[in-house]
Design a protein around this nucleic acid. Structure first.
Lengths: 218, 218
DNA sequence: GCCCCCATGTTAGCGCTCTTTACATGAGCT
DNA sequence: AGCTCATGTAAAGAGCGCTAACATGGGGGC
């Protein structure tokens, strides 16, 4: 039959053995190549070397596979952010810039995950696991914001939640608008990472954190 | 035939007369209801009361219709931003906040346009008109940034392009993450508009614009 | 050690969309 | 009045999502 690999790399019998994982890998590849909509249940099955109906033994439908990819994405995302923050060492400002770079690096290096998480239109409550994973990722961001805010004297501290949302929005905005590998939409005078770094510095400056005066040109 | 309206509202003969416009309207409705992917060429044709092949007389394919919608969106967007900016009256800071609110209002009130423009994956060079319209919209944003920067003393002026990109990124980030009508993804302690307004104020503060000087100034 | 269960895979098929090709209609110019 | 060509329709092929009925064989219960 035409859907079968001519020479399966790992010859198998009737049962695949690890189809669910392989479907996720295939989905990641397809989403990365052709966007979250170019991804097709049937084509993922083809890549995995099984019939078009086989995926339905592991996922209720296409959306459930997408939600699974998004969940794994949020888990990896949270790990990357937590690793970058590294408990605020050596100091919160430095760690925070590292966090920003990690955000963009994730969006850039794992476009398939990032698409599934933020651009595929997967509803957050597609599964409890998805919501929990997304929550944990945001919590990592928020914790960093709290550590930075603790640098300010009491009475000049903005709400940590708001600050986290601002940073998230700017990061996501830069990633979505300018962070793509192909630079499809607009040529920039600077890299996305530099843009975010500068924006974060200015924002923190506005809060009274870091530097020794307002930003100026060089 | 089943695709035909049982009782066309505006009875017509063999020729529709204004199909292109009606297809665009149908597309807007569908995108608004079901997202940029829920939109279907065939269904737009059904809404317009014509056969599934008729749209191909007006658009090469589904993507060209989407690109046309995006182009119209950018034109409307630029008009909304320019109107909000109102040449910086009564003063640039006030006008700038109005601009931000207009950005979010557009994303909120015209989700179909906004989706087609930024979330449907339409490549900017799908048509020269699209690119030109997008360019003009960004130019409006950049002009406002320039007017604001002019408030700063020379030597403390950041590049206007960078500032425009920052504001755009934050606006788009907030719109994409929190600006949806259904609030699908995350409950906020404040409205998207308030969030953007606060973020913009903090950012401008960091540049030394507005309020009574940077927060670090005492 | 055998057998049967059922998780996992396949085949076949329905209904849908996208797109192309060949044909039909009629509005407007001459 | 007659022609032309833009604009519509019908028909058809390919691909996809999903379901139902059937096939296979790995592993647990005996």
């Amino acid at each position: 039959m035409s859907w079968k690999r001519d020479r399966p790399e790992h010859p198998r019998g009737y049962h695949h053995g690890n189809l669910k994982e392989e479907l996720v890998r295939a989905a990641l590849g397809l989403i990365g190549e052709k966007g979250p909509n170019g991804f097709t249940f049937a084509e993922a099955a083809r890549l995995a070397g099984v019939s078009p109906a086989a995926p339905y033994r592991h996922f209720r439908d296409r959306d459930e596979l997408l939600a699974d990819v998004a969940t794994r994405g949020f888990l990896a995302f949270e790990a990357a952010l937590t690793r970058a923050w590294d408990q605020g060492r050596p100091d919160p400002e430095t760690a925070f810039q590292r966090l920003g770079r990690a955000y963009l690096a994730f969006a850039h290096d794992e476009p398939a995950y990032y698409s599934a998480m933020f651009e595929a239109g997967v509803p957050l409550d597609a599964s409890p696991e998805l919501r929990a994973a997304a929550e944990r990722a945001f919590a990592a961001l928020r914790q960093s914001a709290e550590a930075l805010i603790a640098l300010l004297p009491q009475g000049k501290r903005p709400p940590a939640l708001m600050m986290a949302l601002h940073i998230w929005a700017m990061s996501h905005g830069i990633a979505a608008l300018f962070g793509r590998a192909d630079g499809g939409r607009r040529p920039l005078p600077m890299s996305a990472a530099e843009l975010l770094e500068a924006g974060t510095l200015i924002y923190l400056q506005g809060l009274g954190i870091g530097g020794d005066g307002p930003a100026s040109d060089d």
